[in-house]
Every structure is written in structure tokens, then in C-alpha cells.
Design a protein around this nucleic acid. Structure first.
Lengths: 344, 344
DNA sequence: CTGTTAGCGCATTCAT
DNA sequence: ATGAATGCGCTAACAG
């Protein structure tokens, strides 16, 4: 032990003393931007830091620089594979950029989302990534926009991952087009009669996908009647339950049922299988997202692939990019139809 | 706007001025410990804070208090449902305790884990939760223990979630017993000949589960021969691939194949199905963990249930509890055998 | 290029 | 009970 083990962790001050240089020089050697330090001193400082086991205090750096090297990620539910995949990408991207990621969950409530964002501001994160469906005029939406604007005012960057519903940089999932393509692909394979399992009416993601699907059908002269649309929770259990209702009504007149996301589709698949239905013989099932398990259920799920992990990384990149002008940047994320065994 | 919109966010200072009190009083009113502030002043401060949209700067608080109100969670892979479920519990628990959670991933590398922990210390988190299998004498293990000890020295709390391999508070998953119970349950149902798909040899979780399974079998006079044990990556793809090897060797003499975790089991299931195997007719499959999708694959997966989300919450509770003495607390997390359709 | 000095926002002594 | 003054660890002018 060099100078007697300090009780707490070693500080920059300790390092400077140990190396026999000033605080400023130590700071510049270890972190500073332009490498304008005599190599002789620099190596001495680095050695001292090493010897003392010095680790910079992020909070102190954050306060001195006026902003902390973190990205705050808000998700609806981290146990949902859609979000955990995006999170994986965000973490990787943040890591490469030397940023820490903190996480908060909204449980798909606009009110909780607003609260979470307010709380997050206390962290003074460098970037704030908002994932999950935007809400249909939730009332909170406007307050959220104000909150976010105030946050950017203080130098933060926000990136919205979902739809273009807030005036900030956004990664727009091509929900409408993907669903439309899916509908056409399904129809081209001879499917004619459809049903849909959707999320609650206030979720734009659900609405966009449903609308795309219906429009795709309509273009081919097909119809998805209102009474074949079953709203439910935007989760596996929601899908399971909605499929139950459908079974009660009878599935004879239906070729395929489109669930607006994979977890719901998988829940529906389970429910249908429990009822002894043959899939896709009796009825087909299609989802959206292509979560990892979509290919592992049986039959494998027809869906629209979204590059989730990549989206996470792109969100970081977008946040760290220079702004073009004053207009928010909107990048589009395309979906790819994957026809698998769960539909004919 | 009261006093002209400040450029940055409002600070405690601003609030104090706005309320006409001192900085100290404002601090005490808004956060302080013992509520020893004149109600008159207090309400004035609260009102001022409200008016200015004041949000405490966590970094500043952290630095002033010497520790930040965050819990650092390290996982192997957040996209893996095992970890995302635990993370969900951790986030909920942290939320209730007013803590922020930051996340880092190790990709199941002991070296990366060590690096991640070192980096995390810069955050001066209040608690550090280490999840994921411990490693068999990785060499880094000792350095990790030192790093962690140094961290606790500075006032942090560490909780290890996996096995009792590090001298810190730990939530010990009952891997051995769970696997043993599973083996017995399977044997009691008439299964006699087994194979196993394991992770790499250095993962204790994999080893414990395998050992428990073999011992459970041995107690009933059954054997799991060495050449029926296939090591692979501890992931879905690892399971998929190992099942492929097994198919090449022939699965005729095997009643059930035990994969040491559900994601591997599900990968194996997919591979076997692709090969046209009837499950459990030709061969049964069992896993471990009971991740959400275990019940949604077909046939539903026989497994050992671990209360993952609950584990996350318990980890927080353990970290926030007073220490009993100097000995680390070790709590055990039991597993429950779930016999489903993937085995006879 | 290096060292001195002044904050950053807040909690907390220490006086009053 | 309240306010003034210090210090937390670090960065960023600012001088030398």
C-alpha cells in the first residue's frame, strides 16, 4: 500500500498528490479532451491512478460538466421480449459510446410514463429514449411533450422509438406498411376471411398495425369486419383471452387471425391449441415483431420482422448525432414479412 | 413565469430565493431527514419548488451524500428471459425504495464481468446486484472478490444472485435440489434413459443442475452416462445445436433429454421437431427456470420453476436490510418441478 | 503546457 | 428552528 489505504475510494486529488502534479494536470491526463499533457507527466499520473485503484466519480464529473454520461431508457415492460431486445441494443450502443444506461418502466400507462419522465430528469441524463407505443390523445401527451421540451432545453437529447407523435427525433416503426404487406401476403396465399386481436384503443401501435392490415386487405377487395376485431391487453395473456372469446363465437368462418404483436399471437396460439384447433388447418395465426420465440413455437409464427436490437443501437446513434437543423429527424424502420408455418 | 425562465433547470438555490428562505431551509424542507422545519416555511418552499418546476439534481445529491441513490444490476444478457424477468423484479423493488437502476451486461464472460464491475464502481451505486452463473475458478474470480470487497468498504452493498461462491450476501438458487427433484419425478413416471444438454464446463449453474440431476437419477439406481452429456452454449442456439448432434448419434435409446435451462430446452425442442421427432413420443424434453414461454411452446415444457421476478425484488430487499453480523446472509430460492406435456 | 481558482448543486456542520 | 459557511470530487476558465 502506497500512502496508507484511504478509507474511501481514491480521489483525483489523491492521484495528483501521489503523482506530484496539480489537480488539473491529473484531470487532463485521465479524462480531459485535447491531449495536451506532457507525456512524462501523463504516464506518471496514469501510474499513480493505477496504483491507487482510482476510479473517477461519475456523479462528480456529471455535476462539474453539467450533465451525466447516462442514457435513460424508458420501456413499457422489460420482461416483454420486444423491449428487452431493444434494451440489449441500447446497452450495447451506450457501452460503445461510454455511456451508462438507466432503466424505468411505465407499465403501458400514459400517466406513469409522464411520472417516470419527470423523475428521470433528476438524473440529468445526456439522452432519454422513450420506447413503447404512443397514446391516442391521453391528455398526458401534451404535458409529456412540455416536459421533454424542457429537458432538451437543458441540453438533453430525446429519441422516441415508436411513431411520429411527439416533436422530437424519432425512430418510426413502419407498423402500417408492415401490417399492410402482411395482409397482402396472406391474401395472396389464398386466405380470405380474417379476424384480429388488438391492444386497447388508445395504443397507436395497435391502431396503426390494425389499420395497415385492413387497408392491405381492402386493396384486394377483402374485408375485416368490425365485429371480428377483439381488443385485449397488449400482452401474452391478452392474446390468450381474446382467442378464448373468439373460440366461443366460433372460428369456423375464419382463415387467419392477426394479432397485433407476437406475444399476443403466441398467447392466442396457446389458447387455440388448448381447444384442440389445428393450426393452420382450422385457423392460421399471424403476429408482428418477430420476437425470438416466434420461431420456436409450434407451428412457427408468421409475423413481420422488426430489427429490434438494431433499433436500440440506432436510437443511441441518432441521439448522439448532430442535429441537422431545427426540425426533428425522423428515421423509418422497415418491417419484413416472414411467412411461416402458422399460416397457410 | 415567476422570475424569468432560467436557462437551465431550476436549482435549490433558485427555490430558496423564490421562497425567501435560506438554501439550508430549502434543502431541509424538500429532502432533509428529520422534519424540523416550520410548517409555514416548509409549505412556502414546496410551493416555490412546484412553481419553478424544481427537480433535485441526483448527481449533486449523490456527491454531497457520498453515494448515489442507484442500484447497479449486472446481467449476462438482458434479452434472455431469465434475466429480463429478474430485472423486472429488481426495477419494481428499486422503484418502491426510491432507487434508480442502471444496467450492464457481461455476455457470460468472467473477464467482461470483472471489467463491468470495475466500471460500475464509478457510479458509486448504493447497491450492486450480480446475477448470472458464477464461474469455476476463472482466475478473474479472485480479482472480482477483491473489487467487490473494496466496493463494500466504501459503503456499498453487494448481492449475488446465483450460487454461494463469493463472500457476500447471496440469493442462492436451489439448482441442485431442483434438478434432483426433476430427475426423480421423471424417473417415477417411468422414464429410464436420459441425456443432458449443458452449458460450458465453467458455469457453476450448469454444473450444479447437471449434478443434481445425475444424483437424483443415481438415487433410483439410474445412470446418466458421460457420453450422453452434450456441452454447448448456454443459449437457445446452443440447445438447438446440441440437439442436432444428439440426432446424429441417434435418439432411439433415450427417453428424455434434460437441458440445463429453458432457453436451451426450447432450442432443442425446435431442432427435434424439425427432424420430425414426436415429443414426448419419440423423446421427451425438460428444462429449468420456467421462463414465460415454457408454457407456450408445444408441447408445453416440463421444467423447474424459479420465481424470477420475486427473486429480483428479494435481491433489493436483501441489499437494503441491516446486516445481521459480519457473516454474509445467504437466502435460498427453491424450485418447483412442473411436469408438462413435453415429457411423459 | 501547467498550476490556481472558481464554481457545479446540494447536504450539513456550525453558529446564531 | 434558521442561516452562513464548508466541502463533496471534478472540470473549466483563467493566469502564469
Amino acid at each position: 500500500m502506497p500512502t496508507g489505504t484511504p478509507k474511501g475510494a481514491a480521489t483525483l486529488h489523491d492521484v495528483a498528490r501521489e503523482a506530484g502534479v496539480s489537480l488539473a494536470t491529473a484531470s487532463r491526463s485521465l479524462n480531459g479532451s485535447a491531449r495536451r499533457v506532457n507525456e512524462e507527466y501523463r504516464s506518471r499520473v496514469v501510474a499513480a491512478a493505477e496504483r491507487l485503484g482510482y476510479i473517477p466519480n461519475f456523479s462528480a464529473q456529471a455535476i462539474a460538466r453539467g450533465m451525466s454520461p447516462t442514457v435513460a431508457l424508458v420501456v413499457s415492460d422489460i420482461a416483454d421480449p420486444y423491449f428487452s431486445s431493444i434494451a440489449a441494443g441500447v446497452i450495447r450502443g451506450a457501452d460503445e459510446a461510454g455511456l451508462i444506461v438507466t432503466m424505468a418502466v411505465t407499465e403501458r400507462s400514459a400517466a406513469r410514463e409522464l411520472g417516470v419522465v419527470k423523475g428521470l430528469r433528476g438524473q440529468r441524463p445526456r439522452v432519454l429514449i422513450l420506447t413503447g407505443s404512443r397514446f391516442l390523445d391521453s391528455g398526458e401527451e401534451e404535458a409529456l411533450a412540455r416536459e421533454l421540451a424542457a429537458y432538451e432545453e437543458t441540453g438533453g437529447r430525446v429519441v422516441v422509438v415508436s411513431q411520429r407523435a411527439l416533436p422530437f427525433d424519432t425512430l418510426q416503426m413502419n407498423n402500417y406498411d408492415g401490417a399492410r404487406d402482411l395482409a397482402r401476403a396472406l391474401a395472396e396465399r389464398g386466405n380470405r376471411r380474417f379476424a384480429a386481436i388488438t391492444g386497447t384503443r388508445s395504443l397507436l401501435t395497435s391502431n396503426d398495425r390494425l389499420q395497415g392490415f385492413r387497408d392491405g386487405l381492402a386493396e384486394l377487395g377483402l374485408d375485416l369486419p368490425e365485429d371480428r376485431i377483439l381488443p385485449a391487453e397488449f400482452t401474452r395473456d391478452g392474446g390468450y383471452q381474446a382467442a378464448g372469446e373468439l373460440l366461443e363465437r366460433g372460428i369456423d368462418g375464419i382463415d387467419v387471425i392477426f394479432a397485433v404483436n407476437d406475444v399476443m399471437a403466441i398467447g392466442a396460439l396457446s389458447r387455440l391449441r388448448e381447444a384442440g384447433a389445428d393450426i393452420p388447418g382450422d385457423i392460421g395465426v399471424a403476429g408482428f415483431d418477430d420476437i425470438a420465440t416466434a420461431r420456436d413455437v409450434s407451428p412457427a409464427l408468421t409475423t413481420v420482422r422488426l430489427p429490434l436490437e438494431e433499433v436500440g443501437e440506432r436510437a443511441i446513434r441518432l441521439a448522439l448525432a448532430d442535429r441537422d437543423g431545427n426540425e426533428p429527424t425522423v428515421e423509418s424502420v422497415g418491417g419484413e414479412v416472414l411467412l411461416r408455418a402458422s399460416t397457410r
